[in-house]
């Protein structure tokens, strides 16, 4: 048991150190990584729902709502203060998550996915349509806010965003792991395997799922506002259903069910996407699609699964017996 935990912690620490050192090499890589990690937060939210066996094809709406909330607050306060913008974004996404979650947790599987899709497309359409308020398809610019009262130039600001995002990622990764180990978190897995029995135990499945849903909405929102402030803009495109699909894609790519997988997947995805779009301008979508297929068909454990196989270590919990492990290694369970 201790050996497994050490392996996990080692991997996490190594990743953090590497990432912290990288920006000393290339400036623009900082921004790329910041956005990748922010998306990783949204993917973390998806992962929580995958635990419950549900896929949401609409989490881009929380990502986008939060980004626009930050943009509006920034505009109304003439630039604003970084933590106020982030707080506003987080608050809006949590509120929206609660409002929508209350309806959506009554549904399962395809209907859950489709309802989320519908709500996110409604938001997308509103963001595009109400041009005079939201700037339509051009989106809203987010001017650099002050950081704890200080006005920063572009380069120091990007450093701040990078380390802030990294810090939040590490903190939230730990937090989510704790949550998933707690009774409420375990209840999510029960929603997947046998919801009725959960209710027999006296726990409300809906309540457990709602908590998970709101948490995932908050994570997606946090990612959205962080990424958008870094980028300096919020566009309706970030609410489109294909974006939600990308979050799910990354969850599987990284290794569904693992916290580290969400971020590893996000970093790899953003990197591949940037370089593919730059060097294979015509066929980058095809490249990504092929990668996804390869992962699903040959490496269903995602990147973390591959790392496990290569190092021979168990990086996730579970039995060392391959037959039992294979059974346990179903999506979202570990």
């Amino acid at each position: 048991m201790a050996g497994r935990l050490n392996a996990q912690a080692l991997l996490a620490v190594a990743a953090v150190v590497l990432i912290a050192a990288a920006p000393l090499m290339a400036q623009w890589v900082k921004v790329l990584l910041t956005i990748a990690l922010a998306k990783g937060l949204a993917v973390l939210g998806i992962m929580i729902l995958l635990r419950a066996g549900q896929v949401s094809f609409g989490h881009a709406m929380f990502y986008a709502a939060s980004a626009y909330a930050g943009a509006f607050v920034g505009r109304w306060t003439g630039g604003g203060e970084l933590f106020v913008l982030i707080g506003a974004g987080l608050a809006v996404s949590l509120a929206l998550g609660l409002a929508i979650g209350v309806f959506v947790v009554r549904y399962r599987y395809i209907f859950f996915a489709m309802l989320n899709l519908a709500f996110s497309m409604v938001l997308f359409s509103i963001l595009e349509k109400f041009f005079h308020v939201t700037g339509g398809s051009d989106g809203m610019r987010i001017a650099r806010p002050t950081v704890l009262g200080m006005e920063l130039e572009r380069a120091p600001f990007e450093y701040v965003m990078f380390y802030l995002t990294l810090g939040l990622v590490v903190g939230l990764a730990w937090g989510v792991r704790r949550y998933l180990a707690s009774p409420l978190g375990q209840a999510l897995a029960a929603v997947k395997s046998n919801e009725t029995r959960l209710e027999y135990l006296g726990m409300s499945a809906r309540h457990a799922l709602l908590v998970g849903y709101v948490l995932s909405a908050g994570l997606a929102g946090l990612g959205g506002v962080l990424a958008s402030i870094t980028q300096g803009l919020a566009t309706p495109e970030i609410a489109y259903w294909v974006r939600s699909g990308e979050f799910v894609f990354i969850a599987i790519l990284g290794g569904a069910g693992t916290v580290a997988g969400a971020f590893a997947g996000a970093v790899v995805y953003e990197g591949v996407r940037s370089y593919a779009a730059a060097y294979f301008a015509d066929i980058w979508q095809m490249v990504l699609g092929a990668v996804l297929l390869a992962i699903i068909l040959f490496a269903p454990g995602g990147l973390v699964g591959l790392a496990e196989r290569l190092t021979g270590r168990r990086l996730r919990g579970g039995s060392a017996d391959p037959a039992v492990a294979a059974d346990q290694a179903r999506v979202g369970e570990r």
């Binding site: 894609f249 699609g289 092929a290 297929l293 699903i296």
Partner: peptide, 8 residues
């Protein structure tokens, strides 16, 4: 996701 990949 397989069908999503095919779509892409």
């Amino acid at each position: 996701l397989v069908t999503f990949a095919v779509f892409m």
